[in-house]
């Protein structure tokens, strides 16, 4: 069980969270080319090592918390802040 640092609630067990994906994605402009939109919606890296990601504190304050987690060790490298 990961211990996820929530900026509002403090360190909480990951069973209170839902994984909410890659936190480095930036939504393209509304009229950006289709290919850019397809990348945003469908294309994900699968990094081995540090990864910035969102964890949604659904059973807590409902913040989308950003953390940097090492996907190989599950170590939380950079305790996160609020989303974006």
């Amino acid at each position: 069980m990961l211990l996820i640092p929530c900026p509002h609630c403090g360190p909480r067990s990951h069973i209170e969270f839902t994984y909410a994906g890659d936190a480095t994605l930036r939504r393209p402009a509304d009229d950006a080319p289709l290919a850019e939109w397809a990348d945003y919606v469908y294309l994900r890296d699968n990094p081995h090592g540090p990864h910035r990601e969102y964890w949604h504190h659904v059973h807590g304050c409902r913040a989308y918390v950003t953390v940097e987690r090492d996907t190989a060790t599950h170590a939380i490298v950079t305790p996160g802040g609020e989303a974006s």
Binding site: T18, A23, Y54, H56, V58, R62, A63, A83, S84
Partner: peptide
């Protein structure tokens, strides 16, 4: 209900803060 709320929260927090 849960999915829709999480969707709105995501948009407000991560996309259009």
């Amino acid at each position: 209900a849960g999915r829709a709320l999480a969707h709105l929260e995501y948009l407000l927090q991560a996309v259009w803060p």
